[in-house]
Design a protein around this nucleic acid. Structure first.
Lengths: 331, 331
DNA sequence: TTGTATGCGTTATCAC
DNA sequence: GTGATAACGCATACAA
């Protein structure tokens, strides 16, 4: 920087002012400095600026695994929206483990990031308060209702309720909840299961715990769940899957049994991943407003980073949702 | 840090030495310092360390769009492998545009990153030399054969050749190349098309340019390509798709015509994305050795970052590949 | 409008 | 084996 200053016949400070677009710089000086910067190919040293300013211009994004359509979509939106606001995004994969999530938060606290967006799966209320205190964090999508953490959630309960009622309307009487789980910490899994149960209740259908099939939240899980239903001889005419990945797996599982949707059973998913519209059959699913959620999350995070909101003034926003009806439930 | 030094009754320098695991520190001192660090909850300031060392511990990863299964998979592997080596990864989305890719490189040069892995789509040889000079960069997967840039590619030509020959063996005589393109700059598209043409030649099948169907490299592209073949009345009994996404789209496109694989036409893809194994029908595809490619790429990049290789000594590695035969070509 | 002095937190160097 | 000093490159505060 001092080289540039010399070349332009000014002080380093003036160069800094020009580069940061400060107002009180004469047009002539600005021009000379800019020219010198160009000529010398000068680039500002970001590390020094970070040290001095205490910021990094980087937002951390902690997600279980970016190699899952749902998180890939989320990451894509976060990166784009952050770029629009002048931030870059570092992605941390937590592997959906408590340690991984804690590690991601720890990294943030090293002041490597100015803020953190975390898609929590395992980290619960008890951890939250201790771990998040005093750092700009927004939880996205899943667990954590801790009052001290900003949270952008989705309509887990309402979504599966809508999906289940839709299946009932289409004539299903024995609807399995693929991935369904009642016990365990409150989170996407239990909330979505609750929505399913509420819908059954509303529709006057009996609850049968044999139709609750817990399984991993991925393609293989969906396949395994359907296989297990068949192996256990549990009859079903609808599959309300807790995620699209599981639903796509379930379609595959049906095929393995020589059955298919919507002929032998109706199938719904949750997330509206890109593949859902292109599967054979295309997948009826609950579409959460991903874009809105991400926009809101970054809104909240930048507010926090700017210190524009008090520490204990946490907000809890729920995104919009809507049911998209496709071939897997008869179109 | 000086607080810790005071608490442990030593100098800041000694604290630094302990934290960095330097050898010449007495056991007793090390213990006292470690204890003080724990007690005060001290975390090192990364920005200061970066300023001093001239590194950031961050690797940039520039890809077209992380919301595509193939790039998601790549990103997942890169992040994991980088973490193993003590680096974090910042993801830049280039939107597969020349400007986006140039921009990503420019960002890296701001010394925000220690090195850059870039999945080039548009940036060609002519840009490469100028833009990459003097910065540790590894190109991954697609274009760029510039001798001055390290490059980890995949067996584009051999892969589609194998896939096409497989289709011929299974009885196909009119094989369409979905996404196929002869003109344009050398890259994955043209190389894969070349492999297809070579296989036809080897098999003694005539080439018919009506069977070359250029289209966007995504799900929608695959659907559109099949629709166009049908609209043009071009008969076909095999679809050699240049990527899995296009193949999954093609399966959907067949369904829209009331046809399906492998009954009405055999279908192959390229990439072996997770969904390929779970589609109905499951997809025969060329599996490039993603993991090996990423490991090699990080190997090359860390070498460059350590300055262990001369500027003009570029390496060009091609990953392994193998054909995975599934239901879409008869199992 | 521009310049000077100072410090951000760490570590390389060299003396002790 | 340990500590004093300086420097990494920039930006805040204030003086000119």
């Amino acid at each position: 920087m001092s080289d540039v200053a010399k070349a332009a016949g000014v002080s380093a400070m003036t160069v800094s002012n020009v580069l940061n677009g400060h107002p009180h710089v004469s047009e002539e000086t600005r021009r000379r400095v800019t020219e010198a910067v160009e000529r010398l190919g000068y680039r500002m040293n970001v590390a020094a600026r970070n040290l001095r300013s205490g910021t990094t211009g980087v937002i951390g994004l902690a997600i279980p695994d970016i190699d899952q359509p749902y998180y890939g979509r989320l990451a894509s939106l976060v990166i784009a929206e952050a770029a629009r606001r002048g931030y870059r995004v570092a992605v941390e994969q937590t592997g959906a483990s408590r340690e991984g999530e804690a590690q991601a938060v720890a990294n943030s606290r090293l002041r490597t990031y100015d803020g953190l967006i975390i898609a929590t799966v395992e980290l619960g209320d008890e951890d939250a308060a201790a771990v998040f205190a005093g750092f700009p964090v927004v939880a996205l999508g899943e667990r954590i209702s801790e009052a001290s953490v900003d949270h952008v959630g989705m309509a887990n309960f309402e979504g599966t309720r809508d999906a289940t009622l839709h299946l009932v309307e289409r004539g299903c009487r024995r609807i399995a909840a693929i991935g369904g789980r009642i016990e365990g910490e409150t989170g996407a899994a239990t909330l979505r299961t609750a929505g399913y149960l509420a819908a059954l209740d509303e529709a006057g259908l009996p609850r049968d715990d044999a139709l609750l099939v817990p399984c991993p939240f991925n393609l293989a899980g969906g396949v395994a769940a359907v296989r297990q239903l068949a192996a256990d001889g549990v009859p079903f005419d609808g599959l309300m899957c807790l995620t699209d990945s599981m639903a796509l797996g379930a379609l595959r599982g049906l095929a393995d049994l020589g059955r298919s949707a919507p002929g032998d059973a109706l199938v719904t998913g949750f997330d509206d991943v890109p593949q859902a519209a292109y599967a054979v059959p295309s997948l009826t699913t609950v579409a959460p407003g991903h874009a809105e959620m991400v926009t809101t999350a970054l809104e909240l995070l930048t507010e926090r980073m700017a210190g524009r909101r008090a520490e204990d003034e946490a907000r809890n926003v729920t995104g919009p949702h809507r049911l998209i009806i496709r071939e897997s439930t008869g179109g």
